[in-house]
Amino acid sequence: MGCFHSKSTLHYTPGYEEPTVLAAETPFTVSEVEALYELFKRISSCIIDDGLIHREEFQLALFRNQKMENLFADRIFDLFDIKRNGVIEFGEFVRSLGIFHPNAPVADKMSFAFKLYDLRHTGYIEREELKEMVLALLHESDLVLSDDVVEIIIDETFSDADSKGDGRIDSEEWKEFVSRNPSLLKNMTLPYLMDITLAFPNFVVSSEVDDSEI
């Protein structure tokens, strides 16, 4: 599955953006953006080698199975696909992963997680959405909970998070809830991103731009 693209072909990849631009907008250095390009090319060439990550390629990279259906992976793909054109371009990949960087602002992580859970894009996390997500998790795991227990857990979650008591969690309530329960953001930080250049060193060796010049 591995591939190597020379610098001369790199600039003709659709959706490619200059590492210096992406480094300026994200927590990554230029070298790290170039290392991410190596990862991006590997994922985006898994099925269709067109320089774009398709949903099936994203699933294949996550689960080693392109047919694997997963509500949360689907939601993450949709949020990475900022232009909503059905594919993830390189710039979208880097900007979205930037939110998962250990040094990214917590507010960005909170906002991303809120959008992830706001399944119907209403600006609120509603009870029905939360139950749908819990049931999806139970369906994909070996965890067995009775419907009564699920209802109790959702009731208690809402009584804790829905401080205005209107039956839905808005972004302000979400921020306050996460502040009291910071473990809810643990999936929003990827320690791998701190040493991405060690995992994907090829581009660092041939980097065109010295980070110290930026």
Partner: peptide, 24 residues
């Protein structure tokens, strides 16, 4: 119970992007 619904959801492997960085 201390378990909240978001803790349960966060257990999904679909949420774990670290597997993107694993090489075959």
């Amino acid at each position: 119970t201390c378990l909240n619904a978001f803790d349960i959801i966060s257990l999904s492997p679909g949420f774990d992007l670290s597997s993107l960085f694993e090489k075959d």
